[in-house]
């Protein structure tokens, strides 16, 4: 994610250096929201334990990361753990190769199996086998902590989980991440948010709004808000990003980019151009 680091880098408080880090600090929670016209998938293409609630698939990530210059290790590897929770019934297998944790026990939604899979993945990622794998793959020992991505919390909401259950799951995973000195990133579709202060929210009482409120109140990190332009689709600017540190304030690890002065971005074939508003291509 080097394309975002110069603009939305995280302060490296552990080493005391002034350089910006690409990964969020250990033990924190980064919430990324996006909209239908500006999907925020590009903001999470770099990390380790990926809980794929969206059902995107590993090959999709492999292709994109290859274009970005990062090769995924072949499975199974403790460096990249792909967990694909499935809404299928118990007797139906989504893939003959990869077993996936079930999201439903009969007709009751449950995240217990997914949590267990994350827990085992984290213990594998922080174990001695993973340390040796890091050393051999990069040539030097990596000091980066594991990172967990909960990708697609809105999908959980739509298939029958309550906002309370999802917020409890995120809180439990955050506690697990803090225990293992990991970081947590979660993504949520937030089309209900108004694009401008003047435009009304589509439905402020929707479950998505409730879940977003709960995750913001959970705090412990920051919130990246990816949204489309209020003027519609454009070829020069594909969307905007703003960054908001959450509670507790004053840690300084997360950048502060207010929503009224957001960064804009343009997706390209093998990178993402990020620029302050009004400076894209030099003629905007």
């Amino acid at each position: 994610m080097t394309y975002l680091t110069p603009h939305l880098g995280f302060a490296d408080t552990s080493s005391g250096s002034s350089t910006a880090a690409a990964l969020p600090p250990a033990g924190t929670h980064l919430l990324i929201t996006d909209t239908l016209e500006s999907p925020g998938h590009f903001a999470s293409y770099h990390l380790i334990i990926w809980v794929d609630f969206r059902g995107e698939g590993r090959t999709s990530w492999e292709t994109v990361l290859k274009k970005l210059g990062t090769l995924l290790p072949p499975p199974p590897s403790p460096l990249f753990v792909h967990i694909t929770p499935s809404a299928l019934d118990l007797q139906v297998k989504a893939s003959p190769v990869n077993p996936s944790p079930k999201l439903f026990d009969g007709s009751t939604p449950t995240l217990r199996a997914t949590y267990d899979a994350i827990s085992s993945g984290l213990s594998a990622a922080s174990g001695p086998a993973a340390d040796s794998a890091k050393t051999t793959s990069t040539g030097s020992s990596s000091a980066q902590s594991p990172l967990v991505i909960l990708d697609g919390l809105a999908e959980l909401l739509w298939i029958g989980f309550t906002p309370i259950a999802i917020a409890q799951f995120v809180r439990a995973t955050l506690a697990l991440a803090r225990k293992t000195n990991s970081s947590l990133v979660s993504t949520l579709h937030a089309d209900h948010l108004p694009l401008t202060a003047a435009s009304p929210s589509s439905s402020s009482a929707s479950p998505s709004a409730d879940l977003l409120d709960r995750l913001i109140r959970l705090g412990g990190g920051g919130w990246w808000r990816v949204s489309n332009l209020s003027s519609g689709r454009s070829g020069d600017v594909h969307g905007e990003i703003s960054s908001h540190p959450l509670y507790p304030p004053g840690t300084g690890s997360y950048p502060d980019v207010p929503a009224h002065q957001p960064l804009q971005y343009r997706l390209e074939a093998s990178t993402v151009r990020v620029f302050p508003k009004g400076t894209g291509r030099g003629f905007l």
Binding site: G55, A87, A94
Partner: peptide
Amino acid sequence: HRFLHALRSL
């Protein structure tokens, strides 16, 4: 939504 999610995983 559950059907669509399961269909995608299939």
